[in-house]
Write a protein that binds this DNA or RNA. Structure first.
Lengths: 226, 226
DNA sequence: CGCCGCCTTGACTCCCTTCAATGCGAGTGG
DNA sequence: CCACTCGCATTGAAGGGAGTCAAGGCGGCG
């Protein structure tokens, strides 16, 4: 299973286009500041969203306050659909964001009415499911350094860059995404720096200095701490 | 997030019925012995499946031979759809099984062509996605005993029983499902026995003796080993 | 300048894995 | 009927990787 596929633009053009046709009048744009929530777990799910710019994290909060970040979404991804009437996650902007909002009922009807849209939407969901399972493998079976390496590689791929890759999210967000603690994420990044596999331009910007090694670490070559 | 919802019959009746109408002629039945594989990761995905009887595990194998079991499927669940042309998982019978096989192309077309079927199928996929995310939380944030307790409760719910609940899968399968080792699963079960929260009739049959405690353990009351 | 949030590092602990041996039930053949 | 075996399950001992607790460090902003 390739951990690095399935990124980039996963919402075929036909999607946005046909949607705009079908329900143009009801769509609205919303702008969010960093830290603002788009929706909160438990509230009524009235809209589906398409992200135009910025980065959004979707997460659950456990009883003890810990979080599990299910996904980070960036430009042109759709999200916010749920099989229940209520939102099952909380979505929060981690950078200033622009999102397009589709009324849920109308959105679902429009999709169900068009075979082409249905097929696209099904595909999006299946991709999402596949990603979730990849991450289950990652969280369940990979060491901290493997998880972080995999995460960095995915970010670099998404941004189609190897130098000055931007970390939109905080260390805490990364930890919550990878099923680690913030301290472990830090130490692991430090270790990758020490091994000169990555260079940190700043806390939020990094460059991959040795991609082969980073991939080797991600694949589980026993490159240990120490 | 309630860990115990979303089980049981998740494929609405309209599904099977309309499918039978739409493509009755092309559907075939297949029987599997325990241990037989239905499909293997990487091979061409020509069918979608509906399980009539028995239990199937769907998993990935990592380079080093470890496995991550994505799901166990039992009666009346549909599975085997993938966004790619190829199977992304391996499906293997863990008991003797009967499955109904739908040719993939025709299946997808039939679904996309019918708004009602589309809606059902979407719901199934969203439920599956939700389950995958619940399990990400479980694997990423819960202790071994919490995971095992949660797993036992889910099994009992699926079988709608509290006594003589059947474990169709081996300890290894459970471990691979929960992101643990077989030894940890064993020790954890032993600990739950010692605390008289469960009783093991045999290695593969258990009874929940103290459901409240089992739920407390699953929720994370600090019931430690020792 | 000084506060505040985020990040980093250190020391210690502990839960889970690893490695290794033993138990146990079912099927087989002498 | 019983010895033998094979796969699965259980238990023990030891070690390590990541969590926890605690103390700075650093950069941005009023």
């Amino acid at each position: 299973m390739d951990k690095r596929e399935g990124n980039g633009i996963e919402t075929p053009m036909v999607f946005a286009a046909a949607l705009a046709d079908g329900m143009g009048a009801n769509v609205c744009i919303r702008r969010l500041k960093a830290g603002e929530t788009l929706y909160v777990e438990g509230e009524s799910a009235d809209y589906c969203y398409e992200i135009v710019s910025g980065v959004i994290k979707e997460y659950n909060t456990l009883e003890d306050g810990r979080r599990q970040v299910a996904e980070f979404y960036s430009a042109v991804e759709m999200f916010g659909f749920s099989e229940s009437e209520d939102q099952l996650h909380t979505a929060e902007a981690i950078t200033p964001c622009t999102v397009r909002c589709y009324p849920r009922e109308a959105f679902m009807k429009t999709v169900a009415a068009s075979p082409a849209l249905s097929a696209s939407f099904l595909k999006t969901l299946m991709t999402r499911l596949h990603r979730a399972r990849e991450r289950m493998v990652m969280i369940g079976r990979m060491s901290a350094i493997q998880r972080v390496a995999t995460f960095l590689l995915r970010l670099a791929d998404d941004q189609e860059a190897r130098a000055n890759v931007h970390l939109a999210m905080s260390r805490q967000d990364i930890a919550d995404h990878l099923g680690l603690t913030i301290e472990t994420v830090c130490r692991t990044l430090t270790e990758l720096k020490k091994q000169q596999i990555i260079v940190m331009e700043s806390a939020r910007i990094f460059t991959i200095a040795d991609e082969a090694s980073l991939e080797a670490v991600a694949m589980g070559s026993r490159a240990r701490l120490h």
